[in-house]
Nucleic acid binder design. Structure first.
Length: 424
RNA sequence: GGAGACGUGGCCGAGUGGUCGAAGGCGCUCCCCUGCUAAGGGAGUAUGGGUCAAAAGCCCAUCGAGGGUUCGAAUCCCUUCGUCUCCGCCA
């Protein structure tokens, strides 16, 4: 959500930043609408003031027993009520339109975010490790998992259709081990507090984080009007919705290991096989609630927290900064971490860390005490630390042996009960 | 799922149609008094919005949320969310 006051004051600045995301200038129609509303509101408020005043006089007249005066005043009020009803309806409708305009406009990028139309303009910031050299033809994770007899897409399809999987045995355990490993790092070393939040949320929670109203088709909705979370970012960030947090509790760092549900509407044909793109996957999510002045530093810190997991697992990766055209709806800046996948001979996204500024905070009315009588919007950040499913994919592919077995990364052996190799 | 009770300002709590944005208490802020301690006295203390160059002022809205009845709603009605009690069911 955007600050209408800020747009009033700097319309050109907003237009320039939106232009970087490929949007037409928006501020003129926003401000026109804003003017329209305020003008109509004045009329309504004057009528309301007149009604209130006359109503009080009616009360006094009744008390005195002056029925005639009371009746005369009632007709006066009736006139005011007509104005209130007619103009009030107009105000509501105009406000709705402005609200729709504002709620569907994406966040503005920071000034120094690289400009570009699409992912081709993303900027590589750094790499870690060397792309894995196997010395034999690498298999992809699906082939490896199926050969091990621990990854079954067909069985999943029988009950749930495409883009689902049944893991079993040691791969199932690997999934659990990875999640526990990640949580231990983020909670034990990076100060994130573990949470177990709802996986089903209302529309207003999704509106708060920005998935709604624009991206409803990406979500699963229950018959009871709940949505399945597409990421724990929704649940964790909404923890501070409609609250004024004490400033000494900031930064507030939260993590959660949850399933994520995505309809993947519009991605038909992409990553159709394997575990890369599923309707359901597990993720360890990181969310930070911070003061505005701390958000850029916190963003870098969060990126480091996510990177640390890959370093411990000794999985090669690179970090890219998304260009303006590739930014998500709520983000002012985003760093993606991409892990090396031998079967695809390329890096694939495994984490995305975004600074949303006060965009989500405004939408969910999350503030902190800046000073006595001055509550300001917090900044919110979220990042994967990491996507568990894709990490499992990366482990399988990078740690595969020629015979199809998988060496367990050293850091993970304790989490696997001492097992060092996964084989059929 | 059935029956019932409740939801008021930072907190507690009064308020069943008018002069209530809301008594009282606690807390907090400022001032006074008191040579310590304890206590006492006074004033102030919600949020969002409109108007204004700005402030003051004025005005509008807000008593969980949304709608309705009424000249007028914290108070009456409906819907909804939440909390609590009892019963039922259940991992």
């Amino acid at each position: 959500m955007h600050d209408i006051k800020a747009i009033r004051e700097n319309p050109a600045e907003y237009d320039a930043l939106w232009a970087k995301r490929g949007l037409e200038p928006q501020s003129k129609r926003i401000l026109d609408q804003d003017k329209l509303i305020r003008k109509a509101m004045q009329v309504v408020q004057e009528a309301e003031a007149a009604r209130n005043k006359s109503s009080k006089l009616i009360g006094q007249a009744m008390a005195k027993g002056d029925k005639e005066e009371a009746e005369r005043l009632k007709t006066e009020v009736a006139g005011a009520k007509n104005v209130i009803a007619a103009m009030g309806a107009q105000v509501d409708s105009e406000k709705g339109q402005l609200q729709k305009l504002l709620s569907e406009l994406p966040n503005v990028p920071f000034e120094d975010v690289p400009e570009g139309e699409d992912e081709d303009s993303n900027v590589e910031l750094h790499t870690w490790g060397e792309p894995t050299k196997l010395g034999f033809e690498p298999k992809d994770h699906a082939d490896l998992g199926e050969a091990l007899g621990m990854m079954d897409f067909e069985t999943a399809a029988k009950m749930s259709g495409s883009r689902f999987v049944v893991l079993s045995g040691l791969l199932s355990r690997l999934d659990r081990a990875l999640a526990a490993f990640m949580l231990d790092i983020q909670t034990g070393e990076h100060g994130y507090v573990e949470h177990t939040p709802p996986f089903l949320v209302w529309d207003k929670a999704l509106y708060g984080t920005g998935q709604l109203p624009k991206f409803e088709e990406d979500l699963y909705k229950t018959t009871a009007d709940h949505y399945l979370i597409p990421t724990a970012e929704v649940s964790l960030t909404n923890i501070v919705r409609e609250t004024i947090v004490a400033s000494e509790t900031l930064p507030r760092r939260m993590t959660a290991h949850t399933p994520c549900f995505r309809s993947e509407a519009g991605s038909a044909g992409r990553d159709t096989t394997g575990m890369i793109r599923q309707h359901q996957f597990n993720k360890v999510e990181l969310v930070s609630i911070v003061k505005p002045e701390d958000s850029e530093a916190e963003h870098k810190r969060m990126l480091g927290c996510a990177e640390e997991v890959l370093k411990r697992l000794e999985l090669p990766y690179r970090v890219v900064e998304l260009c303006t055209g590739d930014l998500g709806f709520g983000a002012r800046r985003t760093f993606d971490i991409e892990v090396w996948l031998p079967s695809q001979d390329t890096y694939r996204e495994i984490s995305s860390c975004s600074n949303c500024g006060d965009f989500q905070a405004r939408r969910m009315n999350a503030r902190y005490k800046f000073a006595e009588k001055d509550n300001r919007f917090v900044h919110t950040l979220n990042g994967s630390g990491l996507a568990v499913g894709r990490t499992l994919v990366a482990v399988l592919e990078n740690y595969q042996n020629e015979d199809g077995s998988i060496t367990v990364p050293k850091a993970l052996v304790p989490y696997m009960g001492g097992i060092e190799v996964i084989s059929a």
